Computed example of a mutant assay.
Amino acid sequence: MRLVIATCSVDYDGRLSAHLPLATRLLMVKADGSVLVHSDGGSYKPLNWMSPPCAMAELAPREHEVELGVTAVWQVQHTRSEDRLRVLIHDVLHDSSHALGVDPGLVKDGVEAHLQKLLAEHIHTLGSGYTLVRREYMTAIGPVDILCKDPGGASVAVEIKRRGDIDGVEQLTRYLELMNRDPHLAPVTGVFAAQEIKPQARTLALDRGIRCVTLDYDELKGIDNSEHRLF
């Protein structure tokens, strides 16, 4: 992984356009080719990014860019679309590379892991006509618990928690933003599934167009429990 702290501006062009004005930011270049732009706030979510497959080139700035103080240009081009990220670097405060090795992945809580397995085996729990694509669908920022198709054949990303809170909704939102940039998957909708979903998390999810599903652990195991239902 390469970590660069630099004063820079960033432009994203493609299916959407976005501009980040000049400021000091953290630029991350991962071994999988992804490039992420972070600020010193906003928790784990990058301000902008390019997910693989993509190619990054470091270019000399154009004449008018030199006049504005630009010393280097990162141009990141997605290889399957016209999406392009262009980072104009003015000053570099830090530049280092670190070999992190192979990550063993997230070790889930036993109940969450079992919920994921059970829901994948009984994907119709989400509704009639749903079909499983795969568990642990890998993205550039981590695995989505379940990727499935709705009755119309559209992609659905499912994030599973034992207790669903706002952080879980934010996590799923990040996955959806990334996956919807992939023309082979888009449009992708989201399902936030948990044994218990906090009211604030449900409100945030619904506001972002994410469906909430309350899972009954006993029911998924085949035990009839009339006290809990799937909503």
Rank of each mutant, 00 (worst) to 15 (best):
residue 107 V to M: 09
residue 110 G to Y: 05
residue 113 A to I: 11
residue 117 K to W: 07
residue 118 L to V: 06
residue 119 L to H: 02
residue 120 A to C: 07
residue 121 E to Y: 00
residue 121 E to N: 09
residue 122 H to K: 12
residue 122 H to L: 08
residue 123 I to D: 00
residue 123 I to M: 00
residue 124 H to P: 00
residue 124 H to L: 08
residue 125 T to R: 10
residue 125 T to A: 11
residue 126 L to Y: 03
residue 127 G to Y: 07
residue 127 G to V: 12
residue 128 S to D: 13
residue 130 Y to V: 08
residue 130 Y to I: 07
residue 131 T to V: 10
residue 131 T to R: 15
residue 134 R to A: 09
residue 135 R to F: 01
residue 135 R to M: 14
residue 136 E to R: 01
residue 138 M to T: 08
residue 139 T to N: 00
residue 139 T to C: 00
residue 140 A to W: 06
residue 141 I to V: 11
residue 143 P to Y: 02
residue 144 V to S: 00
residue 145 D to N: 13
residue 145 D to L: 03
residue 145 D to S: 08
residue 145 D to W: 05
residue 146 I to K: 01
residue 148 C to Y: 04
residue 149 K to H: 14
residue 149 K to N: 09
residue 155 S to I: 04
residue 156 V to Q: 12
residue 156 V to D: 08
residue 158 V to Q: 11
residue 159 E to Q: 15
residue 159 E to I: 09
residue 159 E to P: 07
residue 164 G to K: 07
residue 165 D to K: 12
residue 166 I to A: 14
residue 167 D to F: 12
residue 167 D to V: 09
residue 171 Q to W: 12
residue 173 T to V: 05
residue 174 R to S: 13
residue 174 R to E: 13
residue 175 Y to N: 03
residue 175 Y to T: 02
residue 176 L to A: 07
residue 176 L to R: 04
residue 179 M to N: 03
residue 179 M to Y: 01
residue 180 N to W: 10
residue 181 R to C: 08
residue 181 R to Q: 10
residue 182 D to K: 02
residue 186 A to T: 12
residue 186 A to G: 11
